[in-house]
């Protein structure tokens, strides 16, 4: 894999909040067509690392490279334009707009029509069709006209995923997409991610706690602990590794899915 250029790479990426180093010299490169899961205990710096990659935070030092280009100083908007898509851990939508309107905003973003002020938004058939397509994709078609604030939590999580899909990025960053979902909703999202994986040119990064999910989906697992990258490798190897057992799963290796059931 080393001969292939990495789609996304972080080089000695570091951020400090006061004296606390939340992400500490993390260097890691990702190839297209792979799904990497980032695991680690709460507060390990997973989401912070995501924020540094997608531009919500500016690193204290180090770089983020997208297809070899240094994007460390670009705004979030510019990074999204370059194909970096992000779904959020805490649901982060437009609460008073309908589900369809939310997805439509994501679709319309790539059409670059935001400056058009003389045409009715609803007249863009192609945008509407694609928005409905993604809404159906996460099985929310019947909720199209419901304002997001009226949707149950699980549906909001699905919509969050639909927004990311609708951006059609090269890099998908999922931050605990199944958190707070009911048991029967989880497979919907996981199928969706598994299908994405089949497209060879996409890179998927996933933060996830449910170990059974991680094991079945991932090509590779990266373990963060206290902001540092402590392990990186094949799923089987990582899960068996004593460092991981201690850092993430706790000493009792028998209860790996404890957090998932919470």
């Amino acid at each position: 894999m080393a001969d292939q250029q990495a789609v996304l790479e972080t080089r000695s990426l570091t951020i400090q909040f006061g004296g606390h180093v939340a992400v500490d010299e993390v260097s890691c490169a990702f190839q297209a067509g792979t799904l990497t899961t980032i695991i680690g205990p709460n507060g390990a710096g997973k989401t912070t690392w995501f924020n540094l990659i997608s531009g919500q935070l500016t690193p204290s030092s180090g770089q983020v490279l997208l297809a070899g280009e240094d994007i460390s100083n670009l705004s979030t908007e510019a990074r999204t334009d370059k194909g970096l898509g992000r779904a959020f851990q805490l649901t982060n939508l437009f609460p008073n707009l309908s589900a369809l309107e939310n997805v439509r905003l994501a679709v319309a973003s790539s059409y670059r029509i935001g400056h058009i002020f003389w045409q009715r938004a609803s007249l863009r058939r192609d945008i509407e069709d694609r928005a409905r397509h993604y809404l159906d994709f996460v099985r929310l078609g019947h909720r199209a006209d419901t304002p997001v604030s009226y949707l149950p939590h699980g549906d909001q999580r699905k919509l969050e995923v639909a927004l990311l899909m609708a951006l059609e990025p090269h890099v998908f960053m999922f931050d605990e997409p199944t958190a707070g979902m009911s048991v029967d909703e989880v497979p919907v999202i996981l199928d969706l991610i598994a299908n994405l994986k089949k497209q060879d040119d996409k890179l998927i990064l996933l933060v996830e706690h449910k170990m059974d999910v991680v094991r079945s989906l991932s090509d590779r697992i990266v373990v963060l602990h206290h902001g540092q990258l402590v392990a990186d490798g094949e799923p089987a190897e990582i899960i068996a590794s004593p460092v991981v057992q201690e850092a993430y799963l706790g000493t009792s290796a028998g209860a790996p899915t404890e957090e998932a059931s919470a």
Binding site: S54, Q56, S75, T76, E77, T80, D81, R86, F88, N92, L93, F94, L105, A106, S109, S110, G114, L163, L167
Partner: peptide, 8 residues
């Protein structure tokens, strides 16, 4: 914040 994350 989310509007920015969508690229606006």
């Amino acid at each position: 914040f989310r509007a920015q994350a969508l690229g606006y």
